Simulated assay, not measured.
Amino acid sequence: MMFKFDFLGKYFGKFCEGASITLGISAITVFLGIILGSILFFMKNSNVKIGKFNPLRIISSVYVEVIRGTPMLLQIMMVYSGSKLIFGIDISAFTAAIIAISLNSAAYVSEIVRAGIEAVDPGQLEAARSLGMKNSMAMKLIIIPQAIRNILPAIGNEFVAIIKDSSMASVIGVGELMFSSKIVQGATYLSLEPLMIAAVFYFMMTFLLGRFMGYVERRLKQSDIR
């Protein structure tokens, strides 16, 4: 079987354009996911009660379970279709993908934040309290800076996962890398070769990001030793 890659000269720019959109979607959604995930974590650990119930904790727990228990593809399609039907807002496919993937990422990031903070020695918080610090100040000045070192590698893994999962946005017409490969398939009448090129692009993005995050993690460990 002979593979034909002579189309690359004409369509290489299309793959590069799709890869740049994929990276853009991933960077934006990871950033928003970190913010929303942190909010979910603090909601889950809040002490606000109405009677015997803690509404913030219930809302955040239900949200995390629902998001983690349903496919991202379904969530993307529901945001894209539901925004018009339910809220009367006609949003673009790109915006719908950003919203859906960010909401999905937030559920996972909230658990990453929880695990990172719980990994910090509880004695640190007790020591801060004994010095007269409030919980909020102790979290801000002592716990969170240490937790970031625990969280960062997992956030890197989440970034890698989103780069790959963002391919699902192609089903609603977002012009990311997978969508670009479909366009090239239609233009060249080749089924496999455009997908192979897309696979190379995905691998390069995730490989380089993984190596960068590994470098950052080693630097953080070296600073701990010092």
Rank of each mutant, 00 (worst) to 15 (best):
G33M: 07
R57N: 14
V30C: 13
M78R: 03
I35Y: 00
S20T: 10
T29K: 07
Q124D: 06
L36N: 03
V113G: 06
I35M: 13
A107M: 09
L40W: 00
I59L: 14
F42H: 07
I112N: 05
R114Y: 00
L56I: 07
V109I: 15
I91A: 02
Y63T: 11
V30T: 15
T95N: 07
S83V: 08
A97R: 06
S38C: 09
I89Q: 13
K84D: 12
I67Y: 03
V113A: 10
I117L: 10
V48W: 02
G88Q: 12
F42E: 12
M77N: 09
L36T: 03
T29Y: 01
S38E: 09
I39W: 02
N47K: 13
A27L: 15
N54Y: 11
I91Q: 06
I21M: 15
V79W: 01
G82V: 14
S102E: 05
P122L: 04
E111V: 09
T29V: 08
E118S: 12
I98W: 01
I50H: 02
Q75F: 00
P71N: 09
I91H: 04
S105R: 01
A115M: 11
S92G: 07
L85V: 14
I34C: 14
F42M: 12
I99G: 01
I117S: 01
L85G: 00
L73S: 07
I89L: 15
E126C: 03
I50D: 06
K84H: 04
G33Q: 13
P71Q: 08
M72C: 03
L74I: 15
S92P: 03
Y108C: 05
